[in-house]
């Protein structure tokens, strides 16, 4: 056996290890962590929401509508963070070829979409009494709508491609290019609205003038939503990994039968 053959063989052995060790390790670790994450979600999100809903005073200007921020702000935050997490996971897949990365990105997309939709809907519901309109082409609103479209395209691409590795590669490329364009769109939209309206007359900057009474339960819900996101991504990635393994087993069965 020449040296080259030996190194090639050992590299193949490592490939095998990378291929299996990480999903297995991932299943093991997340299996252990999941109850804790779910617990953290329950002890932060639910008290935070109850606090926010029942025990916060009305705001001078906004009345009781201020309570909407407890569902709006956390989901808006996670809508962006979910995309960021998908970008990182995609990069991990492209660079290190860890299947967990690609599958975690796939698992996070529907979660991100739901948060984006919640942010848009609750924003519209808040905007109706406050601004007198369901929708305004405010830069922030518009950016979220565009983000929603990016999520749709990303998920549609996953759904359209049969081969899982090809789908993972192509969606990762899309996630990277899409991120650049999403940031670009954000700036473009800022510029565009300024150009039309000479300075935004409507702003969603609730945080800036939020007093402690509102801020404390909000922090609790923010922590809670992050925990919820992590828990959901764990669960969904585990589902994806199990499906992958199931697919492999079924192929083997079919081969054995043939």
């Amino acid at each position: 056996m020449t040296k080259m053959e030996r190194t090639k063989q050992s590299r193949d052995a490592w490939n095998w290890l990378w291929e299996w060790a990480n999903p297995v390790k991932f299943m093991h670790l997340t299996g252990k962590a999941l109850p804790w994450v779910v617990g953290l979600t329950l002890v932060t999100l639910i008290p935070g929401l109850i606090w926010g809903f029942f025990f916060t005073p009305e705001a001078d200007k906004f009345g009781s509508s201020v309570k909407i921020i407890y569902v709006h702000v956390p989901s808006a935050m996670m809508a962006i963070n979910a995309w960021a997490m998908m970008l990182v996971a995609s990069l991990i897949w492209l660079v290190r070829r860890h299947h967990v990365g690609a599958l975690a990105a796939k698992a996070a997309a529907p979660v991100g979409v739901v948060f984006t939709v919640i942010a848009l809907l609750t924003g519209a519901i808040w905007g109706q009494p406050m601004w007198g309109t369901w929708w305004a082409w405010d830069p922030r609103l518009t950016s979220f709508l565009i983000l929603f479209l990016f999520y749709l395209g990303y998920m549609a691409l996953w759904a359209a491609i049969d081969d899982p590795d090809t789908a993972a590669d192509l969606t990762s490329v899309l996630a990277i290019v899409g991120s650049v364009f999403a940031v670009l769109s954000r700036y473009a939209v800022n510029f565009w609205n300024q150009g039309l309206h000479q300075g935004a007359s409507l702003s969603l900057d609730a945080e800036e003038n939020v007093a402690d009474v509102y801020w404390q339960p909000l922090v609790l819900t923010l922590v809670g939503i992050v925990a919820l996101f992590v828990a959901l991504v764990f669960i969904r990635t585990r589902t994806q990994l199990r499906r992958r393994r199931l697919h492999a087993l079924e192929l083997r069965e079919r081969m054995a039968d043939a």
């Binding site: 395209g153 899409g178 364009f181 939209v189």
Partner: peptide, 13 residues
């Protein structure tokens, strides 16, 4: 569906 969101900045400017 993939391309149109990417066209947004170009269209705006």
């Amino acid at each position: 569906l993939l391309v149109l969101p990417l066209y947004v900045p170009t269209l705006i400017f």
